[in-house]
Design a protein around this nucleic acid. Structure first.
Lengths: 111, 111
DNA sequence: TATTTGTGTAACCTAAAAGTTACATATTAT
DNA sequence: ATAATATGTAACTTTTAGGTTACACAAATA
């Protein structure tokens, strides 16, 4: 059994895919509309879209023969959690530094 | 002139490197100490560390023959910015949805 | 109905990533 | 001085990612 649920970090590692996400934040777009903005073949774009879809970054709404790509929050969650973890880390570190400074200040008296 | 400043997104795309960052959030570690926690050769770890260093995720303090790896915030900035952008996006979208709901409520009167 | 349009997929190629082993080198310990 | 330790790097291999072209097919249009 192969658990191959493509990981969000890998998905956004590709600059083209990041750009697609940025574009979709302006408005939903069809696959072809997206492809027009890239210097690569349409099938290549199609693949990227599939990845974005599989990893939960977008939803796709079929309208006739067109497929409209719409941003979806799910895929971002894992990234948000990761960044959040380190945000807290840096904040905590800053807090510790300041309390050290404060205790020094207390020891030596201020001014 | 080759501008090859390895991109932060690509650096964290690798699960091992992410794990190294997590480990370093507990405490700074030498290269060998890090390598002990992974099922790969020491030179492989060495390479990962070099990437993390180059991309600004860690600082390295040489103490004798040991190299101590210490987490550094710089590398995270680009990721934070990216996530931040989409955080704002989702928040804004939620706001829009709510104002639509509100205006509907106003139209029909409340209750 | 014939054609064009919007798309997915398979087969293939190439380049880059990630790993390995072998070796070099500086520091520390004996 | 010798041996052991902590590391970097080069050369090489394998796997995977990202791209291409060629083809299939359903929906829209003429």
């Amino acid at each position: 059994m192969k658990t191959n649920t493509l990981d969000a970090f890998q998905v956004i590692a590709d600059p083209s895919r990041r750009q697609m996400l940025m574009m979709l934040s302006k408005d939903s777009m069809t696959i072809n509309a997206i492809a027009d903005n890239f210097d690569m073949s349409r099938p290549a774009v199609s693949k990227h879209i599939k990845l974005l879809y599989t990893a939960g970054f977008i939803t796709i709404k079929d309208i006739g023969r067109e497929r409209h790509c719409i941003l979806k929050q799910d895929g971002f969650q894992e990234l948000q959690d990761f960044i959040n973890f380190f945000d807290k880390f840096w904040t905590a570190r800053l807090g510790k530094l300041q309390s050290i400074l404060n205790s020094k200040q207390a020891k030596h008296g201020r001014d």
